[in-house]
Amino acid sequence: MSRKILVVDDEIHILRVVAIKLKNNGFEVITAEDGKQGFETALAEMPDMIISDYQMPNMTGIEMVEKLRQNETTKCIPVIMLTARGFAIEDQQKQNLNIAEFLSKPFSPKELLNTVEEILQNCTAK
């Protein structure tokens, strides 16, 4: 069974490129264009992993993860966050929200794919 990954970004070009990369490598991909839509999609689709942008309208990536962590069913979904902001998120916040990895934009789709596979492997191992 292929793994289902939710990609959340307000840049459609980024959504498209990440989706193609993942699909080409055997993943099932669903997309959302902002944090609010991402949260709703996550609840409805229960993906194996979420790749989200940091800064988005309506609800930021961080706000979305905060809400997901409060929900019993989505509490443990691993999250990779993409960010174009120069600032680093504090380790404490990273731990609190259980964010698996931060990748800064511009990012390499290849590297993103590697990170996704690595994290999913670790999850299965556990």
Partner: peptide
């Protein structure tokens, strides 16, 4: 935009 350029070029 740089992120898009970079990602699409790599693809």
């Amino acid at each position: 935009p740089l992120a898009s350029i970079n990602a699409y070029a790599e693809m």
